[in-house]
Nucleic acid binder design. Structure first.
Lengths: 359, 359
DNA sequence: TCGAGCATTGTTAGCGTTAACAGCGGGGCC
DNA sequence: GGCCCCGCTGTTAACGCTAACAATGCTCGA
């Protein structure tokens, strides 16, 4: 035989990872028969199968994915492009994608990008393409990135994870709107004159959906619609933004995610106010810590892992020319302790004048 | 009817992803020459190289990683096994691993396991092995899993991410101990009689390191060492555990991570106490939200992304038979607003009696 | 002038696997 | 009894790429 790789053993017996041929030889059959056994082909006699299986077990044989991919032109691998990997939503979605992919027999390649720019996303997609991924789940909610991803779809099927705009999960957007709407209604019904909004970045579909829900709820109940303030999803940005909201005399703030909401709570507290005594705060996402914050955060629960799973479902569907259309996950309001009736006198300074004029 | 992927062209010309042979033909050279250009071999004439590069650009050629892996027996891919993917530490470490691997020209396969059992970890490792990863970074701090990983090291080089026990980052453990020690000293110096500990799971090296640091600081300053209470890293478990700590009359709690610390704050507040007025709380990890919690959490900052990067450094070192030994990352205390001098009268009920007896 | 020696390019043979087809007994059917 | 077909197994030729070696055309020194 030929040259063997691996460390040559002391007693001359060469150690190398076993391949199909080794199993075939040991079992006394052809490689093709071993291949059939490995792939669960029905046309193998029971006795033969058993012999082959024994040989596989004895040698500890595991098929080589690269060789398979090469010949079948199917890598059984999907790629994930993720941005802001430490954000709760991203991490949880990734988890769901990974689980679902694994369950379907696919392996997962991950590329995380630091800045979501068309070029970086494009490069990430290229790298994934080079790995012959069969499809890509992109967790990059910014619009700019989404266009890049959409363009790449011609080369390799891509599913956008938030799925708010994509063709895969079309009503997810409206469910998100509805959930935001519900959150704001909750605040209005508590008696707040109006509800301020701490929005996410303008170029994220989630931001827009949540802002839309907020706005419609306000318009519907004939409230003034204050100018929303923007954050970048982080607690730090939420804190900063809240300072302005407070100046504006807000008594109720609907933040586009929990991290920012928690920053709002901090700002209110620091300004000498109380949540929910002076200001009510609602978040979005319901990250695991939300229930244990002080005060426990009223927020909208969103099952990101499920979102990830459904993305895979859609993607795998497209790979087999089926058009899968899973029901969108429906976020729902979880009322906890960060919301209450508005205070008799609002916290902000100049605020009184302004809201009085508006109301 | 061999179906080519990509969009079928209107004029019947089948569109298929270009391969080396296509480039070679277009450039009028042999495949080998194209291969040399792609791999940056110096022995290609400048004119030839330019022609080949033009052809590559025109066709949009990208080398096929599977074919390469097959023939070179180097996949240029590393695997990551991660558990509890939504925990801050895990997510951030994964990010660091991914970044460093990518920078070194490696791609990353991720397998996330839900329960850390020897079997599930073993299966994850097997799957990774099947993908011919050249090495594995395992973010599975439980001891049981670590043994499994260590055993797999014979088949494929593995680096344990927390690196507290592993051969790769040996002093990381003691730095962790030192950081915990520093945190507890901070509390003691504030005037607390003793410091209670909310530990992580017993079979995590981090838990043990932090508990050790806590204990030594207490012993060193001649304090009673209260029985530590255990959580599972989540805020929920921290909340539950804190209830017992409070019964015990704790005035200072050192929690093994931020999530649990935040649960402690919640429990204290719910019991009618204040942080830090009645109970001081210190966390560990310094997750991004920590500075914006109410109150801002005093905690130990740990750069997980850096941990991930160094794991990759060690792993890639081993792959090239170099023994890399990067300096361990040194966590450091960040004092914020959740710690203060102890109250005149402790919050807990039976507590007074007990601590009085102890002191 | 000739061959050594260099720079550049081409040729051949796989890497480990599966697709496609070929072969080979034996049982059922007419 | 002959034929066909079925169940099972084997053979051959790729998949896209690179390692190893062979071959070419030069330049240069003796």
């Amino acid at each position: 035989m030929r040259r063997n790789r691996g460390t040559p053993d002391a007693d001359g017996e060469p150690v190398r990872t076993p391949v199909l041929a080794d199993v075939a030889e040991l079992a006394g059959v052809s490689q093709q028969t071993v291949s059939r056994v490995v792939n669960g082909s029905p046309s193998v006699a029971r006795r033969t199968r058993e012999r082959v299986e024994a040989a596989i077990a004895e040698l500890g044989y595991r098929p080589n994915a690269a060789a398979r991919a090469l010949v079948t032109r199917r890598s059984r691998r999907i790629g994930v492009v993720a941005a802001r990997a430490t954000l709760h939503g991203t991490a949880a979605t990734l988890l769901g994608v990974q689980e679902a992919a694994r369950a379907a027999g696919y392996s997962v390649s991950v590329v995380m990008v630091r800045d979501i720019l068309p070029e970086t996303v494009e490069e990430a997609l290229r790298e994934l393409h080079e790995q012959s991924v069969e499809g890509v789940v992109a967790i990059v909610p910014e619009d700019a990135a989404q266009e890049t991803v959409a363009a790449a779809d011609a080369v390799v099927p891509c599913v956008l994870a938030p799925g708010l705009d994509g063709p895969g999960l079309p009503d997810a957007y409206w469910l998100e709107v509805a959930a935001a709407h519900e959150a704001v209604r909750h605040l209005v019904e508590l008696g707040h004159r109006t509800v301020h909004h701490l929005a996410g970045p303008a170029d994220w579909a989630e931001s827009r959906a949540r802002a839309t829900g907020w706005r419609t709820a306000l318009v519907e109940t004939l409230r003034v619609v204050p100018a929303p303030v923007r954050g970048d999803w982080t607690a730090a940005s939420g804190y900063l933004a809240a300072l302005r909201l407070l100046e504006d005399g807000a008594t109720a703030v609907f933040a586009a995610n929990d991290h920012m909401a928690l920053g709002v709570v901090r700002a209110v507290t620091e300004a000498g106010g109380a949540v929910p005594g002076d200001v009510s705060v609602v978040g979005f996402d319901d990250m695991p810590d939300a229930a244990y914050l002080t005060p426990p955060l009223t927020t909208v629960h969103k099952d990101f892992a499920e979102v990830g799973r459904r993305c895979v479902e859609v993607l795998l569907g497209r790979l087999s020319d089926r058009l899968v259309h899973p029901e969108a996950v429906s976020p729902r309001l979880v009322v906890r302790a960060s919301t209450a009736v508005p205070p008799a006198v609002p916290l902000g300074g100049r605020a009184e004048r302004r809201t009085a004029a508006a109301g």
